[in-house]
């Protein structure tokens, strides 16, 4: 078990050390506060994405679902003047509905989740523009309490994200539900012929992923003090990158929520570090791209060595 995480920890520490040596302002509280602020929403969605990848699926719609859920949150809160808890519930329901549509369509018509969630990626984004009339809604006030609350110096979203990681890992590795997901990702037909209907589990996974995107929407809206229908464009790829860096297989059947969290950290540290040493946006993206591929090559190599 510990060996599973060792490589990720080493990679993360190596990045921190390299950037600390090359940028004198990197190893400071400010940097880490910035990273801690950035990662909760990515982390939460990465947990959902890990589950989807484990059943050999993919969810491209998380970014749009996040934007739509955030937009609805803003409208309910600002235009309708509903209290915050109720607005959050409505926001989560939006996530659930999107996830249910994804999951049911995938299962009912046996379509690849790539296609279905690609459709949702477009549709949910369109819906987000429509409900907001393409305008950003300033929410401020009550939502800021979420980001401003700290316990032992950690912000509420960060604590929530870590909690979701821990629970996600336990569900995946210790529960019947998690075991079925791994089994479905390994060989869905064998699972079906073992007398287990894989369909409800697959739907549940898409529900979970979209709901977590809605949770991330709340955190993002709180951080930005606004609900922006343009929010999180391209975010799905960032999340998938983090999960894949964490060694979760796109072919299904293998993955770890904790390792996905490390993937998120690696991307965040890399981004912050490159910014500190003055790399421009295009250079950052160029390097990030190489890191993603390199990480997966290393992971495969490591696995081959261990299996031999």
């Amino acid at each position: 078990m510990a060996g599973d995480y060792l490589g990720m920890v080493v990679a993360l520490l190596a990045l921190v050390i390299v950037f600390s040596l090359s940028a004198k302002n990197f190893f400071t509280a400010t940097t880490f506060r910035t990273i801690a602020n950035q990662i909760p929403d990515t982390t939460i969605v990465a947990v959902g994405m890990t589950f989807v990848l484990i059943i050999a699926g993919i969810d491209l719609s998380v970014s749009s679902v996040l934007a739509l859920a955030g937009a609805v949150l803003g409208i309910v809160l600002v235009n309708w003047g509903w209290p915050l808890p109720l607005a959050i519930v409505v926001c989560l329901v939006v996530g659930l509905v999107c996830g249910a549509v994804n999951g049911l369509v995938v299962v009912r018509w046996r379509l690849p989740s790539f296609i279905v969630t690609l459709g949702m990626l477009e549709a949910a984004r369109g819906a987000a523009y429509r409900v907001t009339q393409s305008r950003t809604i300033y929410v401020g006030g009550p939502l800021e309490a979420i980001t401003d609350t700290t316990i032992l110096g950690l912000s509420l979203p960060l604590i929530g994200a870590i909690l979701i990681v821990v629970v996600g890992q336990l569900v995946l590795s210790r529960t019947v539900f998690g075991r079925y997901l791994i089994a479905i990702g390994t060989n869905e037909e064998a699972v079906r012929l073992s007398g287990i209907d894989p369909r409800p589990y697959k739907v549940a996974v898409f529900l979970l992923c979209s709901s977590l995107a809605a949770v991330a929407a709340v955190i993002r809206a709180a951080r930005m003090s606004s609900a922006n229908p343009n929010a999180a464009i391209g975010f799905e790829l960032e999340v998938i990158a983090a999960v894949v860096i964490g060694g979760t297989s796109l072919m299904g059947g293998r993955g770890s929520v904790v390792r996905s969290f490390f993937g998120v950290l690696i991307i965040a540290v890399l981004g912050a570090g490159l910014a500190q040493i003055g790399a421009q946006e295009h250079t950052k993206r160029l390097i990030s791209g190489c890191v993603i591929v390199l990480a997966v090559i290393l992971d495969q190599y490591r696995r081959r060595v261990r299996n031999a």
Binding site: I182, A183, N187, E189, A190, V191, L193
Partner: peptide, 16 residues
């Protein structure tokens, strides 16, 4: 193709 979860353990295959 239809009976086993090849990459999983003997334990997980039996208990499924």
């Amino acid at each position: 193709a239809q009976g086993l979860l090849l990459s999983l353990s003997v334990r997980a295959n039996i208990s499924i």
